[in-house]
Write a protein that binds this DNA or RNA. Structure first.
Length: 283
DNA sequence: CCTTAGACCTGGAGGC
DNA sequence: TGCCTCCAGGTCTAAG
């Protein structure tokens, strides 16, 4: 499901709803959900912890508690949902909803934070608190966040040096820029006028400038629109994003909105990629 | 280094 | 209605 704009939306929602609240009890029914300890331990350690702060790095969610940093990654379909009471959760549709709720966190005010994930790809883990979130083990290799003001052309040029991978693959590499996924990679490359098939180390400084500009502009507009809902992204009680209406190439089968040339669709490193071969220069 | 295929999972869409 | 294939906002691993 989520790239940086969608995760950003989820974080804002959780921050608004949960800051200062306390977990009284936790239950996990899908053991593989927790990556770095037994889920029984995970649940016990969460008892009595308060939500202090909510942060995002790339596609990762970081919940800062009293004694721990709780890190979650939603992968394709993970969702955090908040219900008024345990009874409300029990009354959900057993096949459509309950079946896919793999964790429940009961709060001191009676509400329940649920983690739902149809495909069970998402993961979470708990770590002793770190002053600098980049030092948390799952985040050590993560590159600069899409919205990091220090993300600039020089940084990208350095990362791209000698790398013969396609430009799209470079943009999807989370150790370079954190937060870009398949949808926004296509949109950023279209905006920057660069082909996803360009060889990363062939780019000129001005191309990296264009990528930085396009990344900022697409990300800011997508966050403004509340993210993109193509199939399953929603947060809270079915709030959806609006950026899908603004996509220019991703999932488009017709003509380029700029030049009218047929949009091309092909796999780049196993990810379906859409681009305009006329507007987007191959370097 | 780089690329590819496969694994992890489930369900929706479209073809017949 | 059923069956089949393909597809999906992600990441990790093994193999060539």
């Amino acid at each position: 499901m989520p790239e940086a704009p969608e995760v950003s939306r989820v974080i804002a929602y959780l921050r608004r709803e949960l800051t200062g609240h306390q977990i009284v009890r936790a239950e996990i029914t899908h053991p593989k959900l927790v990556g770095n300890m037994y889920c029984e331990t995970f649940c016990t350690e969460l008892e009595n912890q308060h939500f202090r702060r909510f942060e995002r790095l790339g596609k990762y969610l970081i919940f800062v508690l009293d004694d721990y940093d709780w890190i979650a990654h939603l992968r394709m379909e993970g969702k955090f949902l908040i219900y008024d009471s345990p009874e409300t959760v029990d009354q959900l549709d057993p096949v459509k909803d309950l079946k896919h709720i793999h964790a429940r966190f009961y709060l001191e005010d009676g509400r329940v934070l649920c983690y739902k994930d149809t495909r069970k790809f998402g993961r979470m883990s708990l770590w002793p608190k770190q002053e600098n979130i980049y030092e948390l083990p799952p985040l050590i290799k993560i590159g600069k966040d899409v919205l990091d003001p220090s993300l600039d052309a020089a940084y990208l040029a350095k990362k791209a040096a000698n790398r013969k991978i396609p430009l799209k693959t470079f943009l999807l590499d989370q150790s370079v820029i954190a937060g870009i996924g398949n949808i926004y990679a296509d949109e950023i490359l279209f905006e920057a006028g660069l082909s996803p098939l360009s060889v990363s180390c062939n780019l000129e400084p001005e191309d990296f400038e264009a990528i930085v500009r396009a990344t900022r502009s697409i990300m800011e507009r997508a966050i403004e629109a509340g993210g993109t809902t193509i199939r399953s992204f929603s947060y809270g009680s079915n709030h959806t994003g609006k950026y899908q209406n603004k996509l220019k190439v991703h999932r488009k089968r017709g003509k380029c909105p700029e030049c009218g040339h047929q949009i091309q669709r092909q796999k780049v490193n196993e990810r379906t990629t859409y681009f305009c071969p006329q507007c987007q220069k191959e370097k």
